[in-house]
């Protein structure tokens, strides 16, 4: 099993993409999930439906819309152009944005479930004891929602790791920048380089399995996946 330099580069790009996307998803997803869990707004379901869209849409459809809207003639692209920023397709940042959209439900939904599960009572009790909002969130919500955070991080990371359709549409397959493992494997298969495809696919499989095992093993005290 020999990996070429380009395969290693693709592996590195993929891990970088999955890590950065997961961090951004946790930062954006936590307040969003908290709001979804607490809000009484009657049109909340609209937001929930939008977040869940990537679960249903084929990734290539999502990627195609991103390609059009982020492009220089698209709404987001022309806005960026007006602000003097470079277009996002075919760049690493473009991939991060695509991944955040694509993996959003995998982070928001476990968090929302976890937050809902905590209920009002512990927070109200803490409030009567004089705990501030931030205090309540850090000392009560975070520890109690820990399994939800673990599930969200693992799913967000894993889902981005296996991302293909979105990257295919907006990446442009540039080695070192936007060529990720799934694309590299696809290229190997298409070019009939089956042994290299096996090598890279096997590496990804072992890597993903080890990663999931470590995370679940370290947290077996918690009911991971069913917060």
């Amino acid at each position: 099993m020999i990996l070429s330099d380009q395969d290693f580069t693709a592996l590195f790009v993929t891990l970088k993409l999955a890590s950065i996307s997961t961090i951004i998803l946790l930062i954006l997803g936590t307040p969003l999930a908290w709001w979804l869990a607490r809000s009484q707004w009657r049109f909340k379901y609209v937001v929930e439906a939008i977040i869940a869209l990537p679960l249903i849409l084929p990734p290539t459809v999502l990627g195609f819309y991103l390609l059009i809207s982020l492009g220089p003639n698209g709404p987001l692209g022309s806005l960026l152009k007006m602000l003097g920023a470079a277009p996002l397709p075919f760049t690493f940042i473009g991939l991060v944005i695509g991944s955040v959209f694509y993996s959003m439900p995998f982070v928001v939904q476990p968090l929302q479930t976890a937050f809902s599960g905590i209920g009002q009572r512990p927070l109200e009790v803490a409030a009567t004891l004089g705990a501030s909002r931030l205090d309540r969130f850090v000392t009560i919500v975070l520890p109690m929602a820990r399994p939800g955070f673990i599930t969200a991080s693992v799913l967000g990371f894993a889902h981005t790791l296996g991302e293909f359709g979105v990257v295919l549409m907006i990446g442009g397959n540039i080695p070192g920048t936007t060529q990720v493992v799934s694309i590299a494997i696809y290229d190997h298969v298409e070019a009939l380089e089956y042994s290299q495809a096996h090598g890279l696919a096997g590496t990804l499989l072992i890597l993903s399995f080890t990663l999931l095992m470590i995370v679940y093993g370290a947290n077996r005290r918690y009911a991971v996946g069913h917060p």
Partner: peptide, 22 residues
């Protein structure tokens, strides 16, 4: 090298240009 974007096939190369991205 850093500016050559490669579609999986000629249809995607066409798409990259027709959407204004290339």
């Amino acid at each position: 090298q850093a500016k050559i974007v490669r579609g999986e096939n000629i249809a995607q190369a066409f798409q990259f240009v027709s959407t204004g991205n290339a």
